[in-house]
Design a binder for these strands. Structure first.
Lengths: 201, 201
DNA sequence: GACCTGACTGGCCGACCGGTCAATAGACAG
DNA sequence: CTGTCTATTGACCGGTCGGCCAGTCAGGTC
C-alpha cells in the first residue's frame, strides 16, 4: 500500500504545519509568532513552510480560513435545522452557540486577533449568518412569540456578543467576586435574555 | 519664565512618547509596534524612549497603566455617585458605561490586546469595581427592584460584556444587514436587558 | 533503466529588531 | 564662572527575523 508510512506525505505535512500554526497563532497572535519556533513545533524546516504556504502572511490567512469555515458550517447547519420559531428553540440556539464557542476556544481567540488587526475578510459570510438569524427572529416577532419593538439584528447581536465576550474574557472574569462556571453564566444570561425578548403578558 | 518653550522638557517628552505609544499600541498591539516607528511618530530618538521608560515592555505597561487608571477612576466615581437602587439608575449606569467606552475607543482595544496576551495585572482593581456593582444589584434585588433569581455578578457581566463587545467589534458588526448606530444598539439592548432583569408583574 | 516533478533540506542573506554607549548640551546651584 | 545632573543624540551592537536559493531525494511515468 502506498498510504502506509510513506517517507513523504505532503498533505499530512501541510496539516501538521496548519495545526501547529493554529496553536501558536491562537496563543500569541500573528506578529508574535516566529517562523523558526513554528517550524520546530511542527517538526519541519522553515523552508518547508514557505514551500507549502508561500509566506507567514499566507499561512495566517490559511489558518483563519480553516477556522472560519468550521465556524460557518457549524452555525449554518444549526440554522438550517431550526424549525418553527418559538422561545424554546431560541433558548436551544443560544445554548448551541454558547457550547460551540466553549468547545472551540481557539476559534474565539483567532477571531479576536483577526478583528483587532482589522481583518474583515469574513464579513460577507458572517453577514449571511446574521441575516438568516435575524430573519428567524423577524418571523418569531410576526407570530407574537418575540417582542416586536426591537431590531431583529440587535436580538442576534446581543446574544452573540454576550457569548463571545464571555469566552474571550472568562479566564479574567472568573476571578470576579461571585462569578461562577460557564453553565452558571449561561443560565443567568438565558434567564435575563429570554425574559427580555418575550412580550410581557 | 522657565515654562515658556524650554529647549528641554522631560515631562512633556514623556507625555509625547506615551501618547504616541498609546496610539500605536491601540492600533497594532504590542508585538507589531516597532520602536523605530514609535520614535519617528513621537518625534524623539529611540534612545530617548529607553532613557525614559527602560524598555519596550515597560513602556507598554506604562501605557496600559495610564489607560486602566482612566477607566478605573471613571467607573469608580460613577459608582460612588450612584444613589438609591432603582431601574432608572440601572439604565443610567449602563448608558454611562456605554458612553464611556464610546468616548474611549482606545481603552477598549488596549484591554482587548492585553487580555489576549494573558495580562491579568488589573484583575484585582477590576474585581473591586465588579464587586461594588454587584453589591448595588444585590441591594436592588433585596428591595424587589430587580429579580432575585440571578447572580448579581452575572447581571453586571451581561451588560459589561455586551457593551464591550459592541465596541470591540462594531466596525465589523455594523456591516451586518439591518445593523444600526451606537444609539440604536444601546436602546434595543436596554429594552431587552432592563425587561430581563426586572421582576414580572 | 532514464527522466521529471515536487517535497524537502541546510545554509545563507539583507533587513531590521530592541537595546547600549560614549559624547553632547541645556538647566541650574554655588 | 565652574561643576553637576540629566535630557538628548547618533553611531553602533549582537541577535534574529522572514525569506531565498541551490541542491538532494523520493515516487511516478514511460
Amino acid at each position: 500500500m502506498s498510504t502506509l508510512s510513506p517517507t513523504r506525505d505532503p498533505e499530512q505535512t501541510r496539516a501538521r504545519i496548519l495545526e501547529a500554526a493554529e496553536a501558536l497563532f491562537v496563543e500569541q497572535g500573528f506578529s508574535a509568532v516566529r517562523l523558526s519556533e513554528l517550524a520546530r513545533s511542527a517538526g519541519v524546516t522553515k523552508s518547508l513552510i514557505h514551500h507549502h504556504f508561500g509566506s507567514k502572511e499566507k499561512l495566517w490567512e490559511a489558518v483563519k480560513d480553516r477556522a472560519f469555515e468550521r465556524y460557518f458550517t457549524a452555525q449554518m447547519s444549526m440554522l438550517e435545522e431550526a424549525g418553527e420559531p418559538d422561545v424554546a428553540l431560541l433558548r436551544a440556539s443560544v445554548e448551541a452557540y454558547f457550547h460551540f464557542l466553549r468547545d472551540n476556544p481557539g476559534v474565539v481567540r483567532l477571531f479576536a486577533w483577526a478583528h483587532l488587526e482589522g481583518d474583515d475578510h469574513y464579513s460577507e459570510l458572517d453577514a449571511e449568518l446574521v441575516g438568516a438569524g435575524a430573519e428567524w427572529v423577524r418571523q418569531a416577532q410576526r407570530r407574537g412569540v418575540l417582542r416586536a419593538d426591537v431590531n431583529p439584528t440587535n436580538v442576534i447581536a446581543v446574544f452573540v456578543m454576550a457569548c463571545t465576550q464571555w469566552f474571550e474574557t472568562k479566564s479574567h472574569c472568573q476571578q470576579w467576586p461571585g462569578m461562577g462556571s460557564d453553565a452558571a453564566f449561561l443560565e443567568d444570561f438565558l434567564t435575563i435574555f429570554l425574559e427580555g425578548v418575550t412580550p410581557r403578558g
